[in-house]
């Protein structure tokens, strides 16, 4: 599968990501980034462990 179409935060240049988060979320940036990182880690871990396949195989909405 190609579910890594969007790079998780860990694979982005860390400093740029932090600066972007600061610009978007201001003083709450660290909190939001923490929640997002945890969620992306869960998603990545589940995908590594369970090896899910896309359903349906062909996108419904092209």
């Amino acid at each position: 599968g190609s579910w890594r179409s969007s790079l998780p935060p860990s694979e982005r240049p860390g400093e740029r990501r932090t600066a972007e988060m600061k610009k978007l979320y201001g003083k709450d940036a660290a909190k939001i980034q923490g929640m997002e990182t945890a969620m992306q880690l869960t998603f990545d871990r589940n995908c590594d462990k369970k090896q899910p396949k896309y359903w349906p195989v062909i996108p419904l909405n092209l």
């Binding site: 579910w3 090896q51 899910p52 396949k53 896309y54 359903w55 996108p59 419904l60 909405n61």
Partner: peptide
């Protein structure tokens, strides 16, 4: 186990 595309 499956992945759904949010676009779908």
């Amino acid at each position: 186990e499956a992945l759904l595309r949010c676009q779908d």
